[in-house]
Amino acid sequence: MQCEICGKDADTAVKVRIEGSEMMVCSNCKTLGQEVKKKPEKPKKTTKKTTKKQKISVKREKSPQRKSVYDEMDQIIPEYGSLIRNAREEKGLTQEELADKINEKSSIISKLENEKKLPEEKVIKKLESFLEIKLRE
Protein backbone atom coordinates (compact mmCIF):
# COMPACT_ATOMS: atom_id res chain seq x y z
CA MET A 1 0.00 0.00 0.00
CA GLN A 2 1.33 3.42 -0.90
CA CYS A 3 0.73 6.49 1.33
CA GLU A 4 -1.54 8.97 -0.47
CA ILE A 5 0.36 11.94 1.01
CA CYS A 6 4.09 11.15 0.98
CA GLY A 7 4.06 8.26 -1.49
CA LYS A 8 6.07 5.87 0.72
CA ASP A 9 5.28 2.19 0.68
CA ALA A 10 3.49 1.43 3.94
CA ASP A 11 2.90 -2.01 5.38
CA THR A 12 -0.02 -0.75 7.41
CA ALA A 13 -2.17 2.09 6.13
CA VAL A 14 -4.51 4.14 8.26
CA LYS A 15 -7.61 5.93 7.00
CA VAL A 16 -7.60 9.60 8.07
CA ARG A 17 -9.75 12.64 7.29
CA ILE A 18 -7.76 15.70 6.24
CA GLU A 19 -9.76 18.86 5.43
CA GLY A 20 -12.86 16.82 4.62
CA SER A 21 -11.14 14.21 2.43
CA GLU A 22 -10.53 10.66 3.53
CA MET A 23 -7.14 9.20 2.62
CA MET A 24 -5.12 6.07 3.23
CA VAL A 25 -1.82 7.20 4.76
CA CYS A 26 1.28 5.78 6.46
CA SER A 27 1.80 5.91 10.22
CA ASN A 28 4.04 9.01 9.89
CA CYS A 29 1.40 11.02 7.96
CA LYS A 30 -1.58 9.98 10.12
CA THR A 31 -0.83 12.88 12.50
CA LEU A 32 -1.85 15.33 9.73
CA GLY A 33 -5.52 14.46 10.12
CA GLN A 34 -8.07 12.68 12.26
CA GLU A 35 -8.24 8.93 12.15
CA VAL A 36 -11.50 7.62 10.75
CA LYS A 37 -12.97 4.88 12.90
CA LYS A 38 -14.72 2.04 11.19
CA LYS A 39 -18.43 1.96 11.83
CA PRO A 40 -19.77 -1.33 13.11
CA GLU A 41 -21.71 -3.05 10.40
CA LYS A 42 -25.44 -3.08 10.94
CA PRO A 43 -27.15 -6.40 10.58
CA LYS A 44 -29.14 -6.58 7.38
CA LYS A 45 -32.87 -6.44 7.76
CA THR A 46 -34.74 -9.46 6.65
CA THR A 47 -38.13 -9.03 5.12
CA LYS A 48 -40.95 -11.45 5.46
CA LYS A 49 -42.19 -12.62 2.11
CA THR A 50 -45.91 -12.87 1.62
CA THR A 51 -47.78 -14.98 -0.83
CA LYS A 52 -50.52 -13.75 -3.12
CA LYS A 53 -53.13 -15.40 -0.93
CA GLN A 54 -51.87 -13.56 2.12
CA LYS A 55 -51.94 -10.25 0.26
CA ILE A 56 -55.51 -10.81 -0.89
CA SER A 57 -56.75 -11.63 2.59
CA VAL A 58 -55.51 -8.34 4.03
CA LYS A 59 -58.41 -5.89 4.10
CA ARG A 60 -57.68 -2.22 4.20
CA GLU A 61 -60.12 0.32 5.43
CA LYS A 62 -60.85 3.00 2.91
CA SER A 63 -59.98 6.49 3.98
CA PRO A 64 -62.77 9.03 3.70
CA GLN A 65 -62.81 10.96 0.45
CA ARG A 66 -61.30 14.40 0.68
CA LYS A 67 -63.56 17.23 -0.34
CA SER A 68 -62.34 19.47 -3.06
CA VAL A 69 -62.69 23.22 -2.72
CA TYR A 70 -64.39 23.10 -6.09
CA ASP A 71 -67.20 20.89 -4.73
CA GLU A 72 -68.65 23.76 -2.74
CA MET A 73 -67.97 26.52 -5.26
CA ASP A 74 -70.52 27.75 -7.72
CA GLN A 75 -69.51 27.15 -11.33
CA ILE A 76 -68.33 30.12 -13.37
CA ILE A 77 -70.41 30.43 -16.51
CA PRO A 78 -68.76 29.60 -19.82
CA GLU A 79 -67.78 32.66 -21.85
CA TYR A 80 -67.44 34.74 -18.68
CA GLY A 81 -64.79 36.88 -20.39
CA SER A 82 -67.04 38.13 -23.16
CA LEU A 83 -69.84 38.75 -20.65
CA ILE A 84 -67.54 40.99 -18.58
CA ARG A 85 -66.27 42.79 -21.69
CA ASN A 86 -69.79 43.40 -23.08
CA ALA A 87 -71.09 44.68 -19.74
CA ARG A 88 -68.07 46.98 -19.37
CA GLU A 89 -68.47 48.35 -22.89
CA GLU A 90 -72.22 48.93 -22.33
CA LYS A 91 -71.30 51.16 -19.41
CA GLY A 92 -68.80 52.96 -21.68
CA LEU A 93 -65.77 52.11 -19.53
CA THR A 94 -62.23 51.14 -20.43
CA GLN A 95 -60.52 48.28 -18.61
CA GLU A 96 -58.53 50.81 -16.56
CA GLU A 97 -61.68 52.72 -15.57
CA LEU A 98 -63.48 49.52 -14.54
CA ALA A 99 -60.44 48.43 -12.54
CA ASP A 100 -60.41 51.78 -10.70
CA LYS A 101 -64.15 51.54 -9.96
CA ILE A 102 -63.89 48.08 -8.37
CA ASN A 103 -60.44 48.68 -6.84
CA GLU A 104 -58.57 46.03 -8.83
CA LYS A 105 -55.65 46.11 -11.26
CA SER A 106 -56.38 46.63 -14.94
CA SER A 107 -54.22 43.59 -15.75
CA ILE A 108 -56.71 41.45 -13.80
CA ILE A 109 -59.59 42.80 -15.89
CA SER A 110 -57.65 42.09 -19.08
CA LYS A 111 -56.86 38.52 -18.01
CA LEU A 112 -60.48 37.90 -17.04
CA GLU A 113 -61.85 39.25 -20.31
CA ASN A 114 -59.41 37.09 -22.27
CA GLU A 115 -60.27 34.13 -20.00
CA LYS A 116 -56.62 33.64 -19.09
CA LYS A 117 -57.51 33.72 -15.40
CA LEU A 118 -60.45 32.53 -13.34
CA PRO A 119 -61.87 35.26 -11.14
CA GLU A 120 -61.47 35.00 -7.38
CA GLU A 121 -64.60 35.06 -5.24
CA LYS A 122 -64.12 38.67 -4.12
CA VAL A 123 -63.61 39.84 -7.73
CA ILE A 124 -66.70 37.94 -8.86
CA LYS A 125 -68.77 39.75 -6.24
CA LYS A 126 -67.38 43.15 -7.24
CA LEU A 127 -67.97 42.55 -10.97
CA GLU A 128 -71.48 41.14 -10.47
CA SER A 129 -72.44 44.08 -8.28
CA PHE A 130 -70.90 46.86 -10.36
CA LEU A 131 -71.67 45.53 -13.86
CA GLU A 132 -75.04 44.06 -12.81
CA ILE A 133 -74.27 40.67 -14.34
CA LYS A 134 -74.31 37.09 -13.12
CA LEU A 135 -71.02 35.16 -13.47
CA ARG A 136 -72.02 31.98 -11.57
CA GLU A 137 -74.43 29.22 -12.52
Rank of each mutant, 00 (worst) to 15 (best):
E96M: 05
K49H: 06
K42D: 11
G33W: 02
S68A: 04
V123C: 00
L93W: 10
I77N: 14
V14Y: 07
E22Q: 03
P43S: 14
K15Q: 02
S110N: 06
L127G: 00
T47Y: 15
K45V: 15
K38D: 15
I76F: 13
Y80M: 13
S27Y: 10
K53T: 04
T50S: 07
K67N: 06
L32I: 07
K62H: 01
K39S: 01
M1A: 06
K53P: 07
K38Q: 15
C3P: 11
G92R: 03
M23N: 00
K45W: 15
D9K: 14
R85M: 08
T50K: 13
K49M: 12
E137L: 09
E35Q: 12
I108H: 01
E61A: 10
T46A: 15
V25A: 10
T94R: 04
M23T: 03
I84R: 04
T46Y: 14
S21E: 13
I18M: 05
C3G: 14
Y70N: 09
T47D: 13
E96T: 02
L118P: 03
I102D: 02
E137Y: 07
L135I: 01
R136W: 02
C29Q: 01
T31D: 04
S107P: 10
K39D: 06
R88E: 11
E4K: 12
K49A: 14
E120L: 11
I102W: 06
F130D: 02
T94C: 05
C6N: 15
K101Y: 10
S129Q: 12
V58P: 09
D71W: 06
C29F: 12
G7C: 04
P78Q: 11
Q34L: 08
V36R: 10
I77W: 05
E79T: 08
S27L: 09
L118H: 04
G33S: 01
K122N: 13
S129R: 11
I84T: 04
K55R: 12
Q75W: 14
D100W: 15
K48F: 14
N28T: 15
N114S: 11
K125D: 00
E61R: 01
L93D: 01
M1C: 08
K67Q: 12
N86G: 13
V14E: 00
V69W: 02
M73Q: 01
D11F: 11
K49N: 08
R85G: 08
C26V: 13
K101T: 06
S82D: 14
R66I: 05
T51L: 04
E79A: 05
S107L: 02
I18G: 03
K125T: 08
A13R: 14
P64F: 05
K111H: 03
E79P: 05
I133Y: 03
L127A: 03
E128H: 02
E19W: 08
